[in-house]
């Protein structure tokens, strides 16, 4: 039965975890990006600062659930990576702390606006556009035309060939739903979802599952974030990535400091470091194809070229709020998911 030892008399927020006498600084790092990227970030930060990093990797939903469960006695210090919605949700519920980084002026405007919409309790570290990918072998085997737009996916010949995640369980799919509402208007967006429903062969639980199924030849077209589709193609699967012609929504991968972090100074040091161009360039060493938020950071050669993608002006503040999310999901549940396929 163990626990941490705290210096009595310290204020409740600045609970400093110390082990006996003087020891190196520590950082408990919750990571929601892919495993090798998380490892690389943890090791590089440790090398750069000498701060001891203990890293745990979980999906953003799992991490959110954990931070919420731990909120009365926070164990983590910083939460880096993963799609923006759970970060926004955590900010809304007061699970994360406000911080103004001196690095902010080096960032793209979309990263700053993510921070501002959450009262500076989170910040953008990368972005990735929504799109879809298809298995070229299966498309050819079934004599299907190559799709290029969102509307193409509604064509009857794709019946049973399209897969997306269930918006109730996946942030990716919720972004899809919210993007369609923003591209086609609320009625048009839901009409699109209804039409798509007829062609869907399965609503998966996890956001990137549709494109993984496409990679393995278990599905033809998967609606996912484009960097996930690129990762499949780079891994050697016959997947082609499509940036839909009508324009598309995007996610902002985010970072937040956990409210009541025991190693607040280390957390802030990580925060500033993770926004630097040098830290963001680490993505090039692993198969991460998102667009970094630091203006000076490089984007991978294989990543989808953001300049050729028509991005909509995604309203994170509105569509990231829990009220709007609940409303849209309920509407999708009541009007779309019950339709016959």
């Amino acid at each position: 039965m163990t626990s941490f030892k705290a210096m009595l008399g310290a204020s409740a927020i600045a609970l400093m975890a110390t082990t006996g006498a003087a020891q190196a600084d520590k950082l408990t790092f919750y990571c929601s990006a892919q495993e090798d990227w998380c490892q690389l970030m943890a090791n590089s930060f440790q090398d750069a600062t000498g701060i001891d990093v203990a890293m745990t990797r979980k999906s953003s939903g799992e991490t959110f659930a954990q931070i919420k469960a731990e909120s009365s006695n926070p164990k983590g210090d910083i939460w880096w990576g993963g799609t923006g919605d759970p970060h926004l949700q955590a900010a809304e519920e007061g699970l994360t702390a406000e911080y103004m980084s001196p690095m902010r002026d080096q960032l793209h405007p979309w990263a700053i606006s993510q921070a501002e919409s959450a009262g500076n309790k989170t910040i953008g570290i990368y972005s990735g556009a929504l799109g879809y990918g298809y298995n070229t072998d299966l498309l050819a085997a079934n004599n299907l035309p190559e799709p290029a737009c969102w509307e193409d996916l509604l064509k009857p010949e794709y019946k049973g060939h399209v897969q997306m995640a269930n918006p109730n369980s996946s942030g990716t799919a919720y972004t899809t739903l919210a993007s369609m509402v923003q591209i086609f208007g609320e009625d048009g967006g839901f009409d699109f979802m209804k039409g798509l429903h007829a062609n869907i062969n399965q609503y998966t639980k996890s956001g990137s599952a549709p494109i993984k199924a496409a990679g393995r030849g278990e599905n033809t077209i998967g609606i996912v974030f484009m960097h996930d589709a690129v990762a499949q193609a780079v891994s050697g699967f016959p997947v082609k990535v499509v940036a839909p012609c009508e324009g598309t929504g995007y996610e902002i991968g985010s970072m937040s400091i956990i409210d009541g972090a025991r190693n607040m100074d280390s957390a802030k040091a990580f925060y500033d470091w993770a926004l630097s161009a040098e830290a963001q360039n680490l993505a090039l060493q692993v198969n991460a194809f998102q667009v970094p938020s630091n203006v000076g950071a490089e984007t991978s050669q294989s990543a989808p070229d953001m300049s050729t993608i028509k991005l909509i002006d995604y309203d994170f503040k509105t569509y990231g709020s829990s009220d709007e999310r609940k409303r849209l999901l309920k509407k999708w549940d009541d009007e779309v998911s019950i339709l016959p396929q």
């Binding site: 799992e62 109730n168 369980s169 996946s170 919720y174 639980k205 829990s322 999901l329």
Partner: peptide, 9 residues
């Protein structure tokens, strides 16, 4: 599982 970790929290 997805009621806890999914988009609905």
């Amino acid at each position: 599982f997805f009621a806890i970790v999914g988009a609905q929290y």
